[in-house]
Nucleic acid binder design. Structure first.
Length: 444
RNA sequence: GCGCCCUUCGUCUAUCGGUUAGGACCCCAGAUUUUCAAUCUGGUAAGAGGGGUUCGACUCCCCUAGGGCGUACCA
């Protein structure tokens, strides 16, 4: 059976750290299994969903490389949900309720104050046809609840193993709102059945939902998919993901200059037994993915790890991949340049400063003109990749300077900076002419 | 409040009753003919606490503590 999974975001905001894990894990699992990845836009809430966010979600996923094989809008599938609704009504599993939100809220508080679990008491289920008619005559519109069977629903979870949920301890879920809007539960199940979703992979905040949804799958006569609930992310300090971090958007990370592969590597491997480091590609991430590697406790999301992995992605990036982006920054100075500066990058954009050292003008930092004059005298007429070693040795011999005292002034004069990539290849790229001028204190 | 899940080096984790408790990141040290970075090599570092079960427990059970999630006419 071909694996088929889905990612179902609501277009009520952009994709962020708090919900991208579902997309990445589903995508990577599908890819590793040679399966199908479905993008399902959960826009049943017409009032809150916008085209702008929908476009934004697609842009975020595309940028990350998480392309989809099929895509749907739930807002265009209401017929299916209506049919599912009728099926449940006919089976006596869907019943109208007339409590207002305020009433329900009050009852919950009373139950809580008595130390009882705040479960819906099914009062509306006991309504007589006359009472219902009276409500309708008043113009009151019902919301509809799914009648739970009240049993232990069991499944074998891909990450949590044998699981069960006691639906007697839960309220009958509202499937259809008073205004007729479908809440996410029914469309989700109806679509999973209709689309032939084989694996539902989501965060562990959904385990209780899985109990009720399995009952709905069964009531609808659909095949129950395999479920997998991965642990949620928490902040670097181990407490709940902060609001800032949880809502940190992919768009923002992109603007910060991070690599998409760094984000997918980080979040795809977080909480697994794999080393937290850059993957070579999304495909590689897919090949190595295994639910057995996933831990069951919350995984810490640390931006420092993301930054480190980002550097790792850059350090492994070959010239062919970097070239168009270098060109876009006006920093395509050839493969030798890329290979020389690549190990020093934290963010791709850092390359612009490094390009200036080779292709642009640098105002040298000069603290000891006499030292640099000596260096200039010793500079060979031909400067190439092998120059640095011999030249610096000659300067050491002539001046007695060594270590930091030897290298730092040279770096500062030649690059205008006190840190940067290895000087050997850099000197060759700078060339004799510019090097000589900078050693003489001239901007060149 | 109630329910479910979780708790091994600072971090991510391996171990599925008998191990010198392994790996990766961080950190530290050394190397790279001698700055920073990068790279390589090596090193420090762990079973939340308390009870059981057992010849033997990180591993199984119970309690406590701590963390996460759920308990919506949100998703």
């Amino acid at each position: 059976m071909t694996v088929k999974v889905r990612f179902a975001p609501s277009p009520t905001g952009r994709i962020h750290v708090g919900n991208i894990r579902a997309a990445i894990v589903n995508w990577v699992f599908a890819r590793g299994q040679g399966g199908v990845f479905v993008l399902r836009i959960d826009d049943t809430d017409l009032a809150r969903s916008t085209q702008e966010y929908e476009d934004g979600i697609e842009a975020d996923l595309t940028w990350l490389g998480l392309t989809w094989d099929e895509r749907y809008n739930q807002s265009k599938r209401f017929d299916l949900y209506h049919r599912a609704m009728e099926t449940l009504k006919a089976a006596g599993r869907l019943y109208p309720c007339y409590e207002t939100a305020d009433e329900l809220d009050r009852r919950r508080k009373v139950q809580l104050s008595r130390g009882q679990p705040p479960i819906y008491d099914r009062a509306s289920l006991k309504l007589t046809p006359e009472e219902i008619a009276a409500f309708e005559a008043e113009g009151r519109k019902p919301h509809w609840r799914f009648k739970l069977e009240g049993k232990r629903v069991k499944w074998t979870d891909l990450v949590r193993g044998e699981c069960d949920v006691d639906t007697t301890s839960m309220s009958d879920p509202v499937l259809i709102r008073e205004d007729g809007a479908f809440l996410y539960t029914l469309p989700s199940v109806a679509d999973d059945i209709d689309m032939g979703i084989t694996h539902v992979i989501r965060g562990e905040d959904h385990v209780a939902n899985t109990g009720t949804q399995i009952e709905i799958f069964e009531a609808l006569g659909g095949a129950v998919p395999t479920f997998g609930h991965f642990s949620l992310l928490v902040g670097a300090d181990g407490s709940a993901l902060s609001k800032r971090l949880g809502s940190l958007s992919i768009m923002q990370l992109r603007e910060d200059g991070l690599e998409p592969l760094a984000i997918t590597s980080h979040i795809g491997k977080l909480g697994t037994s794999d080393a937290l480091e850059a993957a070579g590609s999304l495909d590689e991430l897919g090949r190595n993915f295994d639910f057995a590697k996933m831990g069951r406790h919350p995984a810490r999301f640390d931006e420092a790890d993301l930054a480190r992995i980002n550097a790792g992605v850059l350090h492994a990036m070959d010239y062919a991949a970097a070239r168009p982006r270098l060109a876009a920054l006006g920093a395509d100075l050839g493969e030798d340049f890329w290979l020389a500066v690549r190990p020093n990058l934290k963010l791709f954009g850092d390359v612009a400063d490094l390009a200036r050292i080779v292709g642009g003008e640098v105002t040298p930092v000069v603290e000891d003109p006499a030292f640099l004059a000596t260096a200039l005298e010793l500079l060979p007429t031909i400067v190439d990749a092998s120059t640095w070693s011999a030249w610096s040795s000659a300067i050491k011999e002539a001046t007695g300077a060594k270590g930091r005292a030897l290298f730092l002034p040279l770096r500062q004069a030649l690059t205008g900076m006190d840190h940067g990539p290895e000087m050997g290849p850099l000197l060759a790229l700078i060339g004799r002419d510019k090097a000589a001028k900078r050693l003489a204190g001239e901007t060149a």
